[in-house]
Design a protein around this nucleic acid. Sequence first.
DNA 1: GTTAGTGCAAACCTTTTGCAGCTCT
DNA 2: AGAGCTGCAAAAGGTTTGCACTAAC
Lengths: 160, 160
Amino acid sequence: MAVSGIKDSLKQQGVRLTRQRKILLDLIDQSGQHLDAERLFQLARERDPKINRVTVYRTLKLLKAGGLVDELDLMHHDGDQHYYETRLKQEHAHVICLRCGKIEEFFGDLLQQMREQIESHFGFKIVLARTEVGGYCSHCQVLRAKEMEALSAESRRSHA
Amino acid sequence: MAVSGIKDSLKQQGVRLTRQRKILLDLIDQSGQHLDAERLFQLARERDPKINRVTVYRTLKLLKAGGLVDELDLMHHDGDQHYYETRLKQEHAHVICLRCGKIEEFFGDLLQQMREQIESHFGFKIVLARTEVGGYCSHCQVLRAKEMEALSAESRRSHA
DNA sequence: GTTAGTGCAAACCTTTTGCAGCTCT
DNA sequence: AGAGCTGCAAAAGGTTTGCACTAAC
């Protein structure tokens, strides 16, 4: 369970492990999903109705600064909020369907290779990296084609 | 000049080429930089003091939807605003120094390879892709080491 | 002349800040 | 005990919307 490692890591930095933080850490770690602050807040509220939205933001900021979670944008497919996930051992890209919002994770050593190329090419020290890809999943490609067709039929009708 | 191509592309979609849009298109294209909406607005105001911030946002949205410009986050190194650049023929990653804000662009066929792998692996149709890398440039690595040293000396003093 | 586009004001959404009081260690 | 953390209220930052007027085609 990755969360216990995170808890240890925090303790060693002299960060207090409060009731609220325990709840949030468990939620981020358990849900395999990519949660945004609001969703995390809603879930946390089920366990502690007194918890404040601000505490969620502060905790996320703390975890991000400590490199314990990664912040994602997921192509802003659903607004400008940020999403979070516990930092995995292996880097991966996020593949977002712009129609249904489904998110796939792409692993592969190309990401690691690129990291190395960038570090050596620029003499750069990478701290965080993010690859996000937006488009249409196999399912939505079909649906979208139908939608486009319906749309142009509509347009033909109104222009007649 | 890429902007004339964009203008043609817009005209063919029945989009009106207004004075304001001409100004904004020219600014985005000319400035080799990555502008955010506010900066673009400030620059546009020098050419047309009457132009409104809202028009800037609407134009950017239009161009983005048309695939004529790409929206970037640049790791939110300076806030949560978005940055824009005219879509280049060749895909590239953005490498952002978290200390000085300098932005490098990384070209290389790894990005193209990854695109292909993702499309074939998931049967996904990619519309847009974005790779952003945050860390420290060679210059700032040195400066940062000094800063960290100064900070821990400070901490030792206050705990004494 | 139409319809799309603009400016203005106001709203919106997400996130941050100031501060008094509470709590972990 | 005391620094660190929380909740509350309020503000900030970035972006969008409604509407009457204007301009491109």
